[in-house]
Amino acid sequence: MTIWNLGSINADMVYGLPHLPAAGETLAADGLERFLGGKGANMSVAGSRAGSRVSHIGAVGPDGRWAKDRLTEYGVDTRFIAEVDVPTGHAIIAVDAQGENLIILYPGANHALDSAQIGKALASANTGDILVLQNETNAQVEAARLGHELGLTVCYAAAPFQAQSVQEVLPYLDFLILNEVEAEQLRQETGLDAAELPVRHVIVTLGSRGARYLQQGCDPVDFAAHKVQAVDTTGAGDTFTGYVLAGMDRGMPMEQAILQANRAAALMVTRHGTADVIPDLREVRDAQLD
């Protein structure tokens, strides 16, 4: 089976800072690194490193061929990544000494996708394949509708969060993942708690407290996070999602997939960077965690 990822591709410019800046404050960075990033690219790399076949649907500009090449190196199928006349998306990421971050995002080529490109890619999909979307590209509703019509398992990682965007794809979803703040914002908009959403599988991530799994007709199940020394939380949620999707793709029970994803996310926060430092399956299995 295949995970089809309609996802963003960014150049992540990561600046190390003594603390996150306040409004009007000027800070000198003590480090700068460039990584392959974007929630989509992160999830594609995570899914591939977790053992799944991942095909990425996206776009880069003339300045972004290095990103497409990097994804290929990580085992991701890049045949459906278009090169367009719009600059590649990028993110400016500030990380403080405690590993917390803030992010400024420029969408660029990630919003230059067209429906024909998505249709051409998904024409190669098979019933039962997984389609995952995030809120960093255009054409999400069209892709979710098409995936649903083709019999794919349609998944949505609701970040960056917009309640309207979630509501627009909600009728087509089989799986939704969001954090507890986003779940509360969605409740305020819809009047529905996470457990009441018309989606078969819902995961609410709880940061350092782990995650909660909600399956229709079943009691919630909580999963504690591993205790590690975090140095950078950037990309941890994407790593978690990619590993959960890979577990689903490989036929794992959801509980087992979440446990493995928790381990991957715990390793990820001990590393500086994004897609380039996502742990592979062997590292996740061999890691000595509490």
Score class of each variant (00 low, 15 high):
Ala139Met: 15
Ala28Cys: 04
Asn42Val: 01
Ala224Ile: 07
Met13Gly: 06
Gln140Cys: 14
Tyr15Gln: 09
Val76Leu: 10
Leu245Glu: 08
Phe161Lys: 01
Leu17Trp: 04
Ala158Gly: 07
Ala261Gln: 06
Gly237Asp: 03
Glu83His: 08
Asn135Ala: 13
Asp193His: 10
Ala46His: 03
Val76Pro: 02
Cys218Val: 10
Asp232Pro: 04
Ala159His: 02
Asp96Lys: 07
Asp77Trp: 06
Met254Lys: 02
Glu149His: 10
Leu152Val: 08
Gln98Ile: 00
Thr270Ala: 05
Leu20Met: 01
Ile103Pro: 00
Gly31Glu: 08
Pro62Gly: 13
Asn10Gln: 09
Cys155Ser: 13
Val141Tyr: 12
Arg250Lys: 15
Phe223Arg: 10
Ala236Glu: 00
His272Ala: 12
Glu283Trp: 04
Gln167Asp: 11
Arg209Phe: 05
Asp238Met: 06
Ile103Glu: 10
Asp222Ser: 15
Val60Ile: 14
Ala266Cys: 01
Ala121Pro: 01
Phe240Ser: 01
Leu36Gln: 00
Leu176Asp: 04
Asn5Gln: 15
Val60Thr: 11
Arg34Val: 09
Asp174His: 12
Gly237Glu: 06
Leu186His: 05
Glu25Lys: 11
Ala112Lys: 08
Leu206Phe: 04
Phe161Val: 03
Glu180Lys: 01
Asp129Met: 13
Ile130Leu: 15
Ala46Cys: 06
Gly89Arg: 02
Gln216Tyr: 10
Val228Lys: 09
Thr153Val: 14
Gln215Phe: 12
Trp66Phe: 05
Gly47Val: 04
Ala287Asn: 07
Ile278Gln: 02
Asp219Ala: 14
Glu180Ile: 00
Gly75Val: 01
Leu150Gly: 08
Leu133Lys: 04
Ala257Asp: 02
Arg65Tyr: 05
Arg209Asn: 07
Ile57Leu: 07
Arg79Val: 03
Thr205Arg: 07
Ile3Asp: 07
Glu83Gln: 15
Arg212Phe: 09
Met43Cys: 11
Met254Leu: 15
Ile81Glu: 02
Ile3Val: 15
Gly235Trp: 00
Leu6Phe: 14
Asn262Phe: 05
Val228Arg: 08
Ile92Arg: 07
Ala50Phe: 09
Leu17Arg: 09
Asp286Glu: 15
Ile118Ala: 03
